[in-house]
């Protein structure tokens, strides 16, 4: 398929309920209908809070084209994208700028399907603030991604959080708890540290990336008392119980579907929400409505209506 044809098809597809695109009279189509359960959810169009465009392709836009093609198969309508590969644990300003350039290149062609989050390393505070201006204040991005460059309870994050709040840019902070924290990378954050940061910035919404990862039961506990922190479910194994516990302890309005593609599949992370013992209304919040609500102020600033 020529690129122009594909883009036209993609643009058309984006206006259709996803099941009309993906469902086929075949075992694969039966899978889609069965897994999603209700017609309401099949027509929803999920918003994915956590995606990386590391899929095959010669250019960032080509990589996104592939990702969109697969997203269409499983009912994912929009993705928050950040951190174009290659990844560095503690990136220099030059490295995170290059990564953000790739995301900007994707957004030029795929703004109908992707929202960009600027990747920063707070260790380089001044450069991070400058990059925030370039990509969010003066650019098309709507959020911030922080990974493992700096523990998130450090004071270097404070000016970034303040400026993010001024720009209505939501911050997604990676967190993980490996071997009860003993196995974490040197600068890798935990949900407990994110709760500390949140306490210094009451009222500023934050997203707890992975919610502690495999040890999500600790992560959920750690952010429970901070109502500003939302739980991103993505990136871990689809172990039964996480979604139910998150909804029970945080409320469905604080829980977000995120896939962490390309390392993860859309399927395993969607499946944990669809398979959870929740109401359709709760699943709808997690799969789409909560992220719409969180992004709306930033989107409004950009003149993007959804």
């Amino acid at each position: 398929m020529k690129r122009r044809d594909f883009l036209a098809t993609g643009a058309l597809a984006a206006t259709l309920p996803w099941h009309a695109r993906a469902a086929q009279p075949s075992p694969a189509g039966e899978v889609a209908a069965s897994a999603w359960g209700s017609a309401e959810l099949r027509q929803l169009g999920a918003w994915d809070a956590h995606a990386h465009v590391g899929t095959p392709g010669a250019t960032p836009a080509k990589r996104m084209e592939y990702l969109v093609r697969i997203a269409d198969r499983v009912g994912v309508e929009r993705m928050c994208i950040f951190m174009s590969p290659p990844w560095q644990y503690e990136p220099t300003p030059e490295q995170f700028r290059k990564s953000n350039d790739d995301v900007l290149a994707v957004l030029k062609e795929w703004s109908s399907r992707a929202f960009g989050f600027v990747y920063l390393n707070p260790t380089h505070t001044r450069a991070s603030l400058d990059e925030l201006e370039r990509c969010v204040a003066d650019g098309p991005m709507v959020g911030i991604k922080l990974w493992v460059g700096c523990h998130c309870n450090r004071p270097e994050l404070d000016p970034i959080v303040k400026r993010a709040a001024e720009l209505d840019a939501i911050i997604l902070q990676h967190t993980w708890i490996k071997q009860r924290g003993k196995g974490n990378l040197p600068q890798e954050s935990t949900p407990m540290e994110l709760a500390e940061l949140s306490a210094r910035h009451p009222g500023v919404p934050l997203i707890c990336g992975h919610t502690g990862g495999g040890d999500w039961s600790l992560g959920i506990r750690a952010i429970r008392s901070r109502s500003e922190i939302h739980a991103d479910l993505g990136g871990g194994d689809p172990v039964y119980g996480e979604v139910e516990m998150a909804v029970r302890e945080l409320g469905a309005a604080r829980v977000l579907y995120g896939s962490d593609v390309h390392g993860r599949s859309f399927a395993s992370q969607l499946g944990r929400v669809l398979g959870a013992n929740l109401t359709v209304a709760e699943k709808r919040l997690i799969l789409r409505d909560n992220l719409v609500r969180l992004l709306r102020p930033a989107l409004k600033r950009k003149g993007i209506t959804v």
Partner: peptide
Amino acid sequence: EAALLKLQE
């Protein structure tokens, strides 16, 4: 459901 959707993806 996580496994099932892999067939769709």
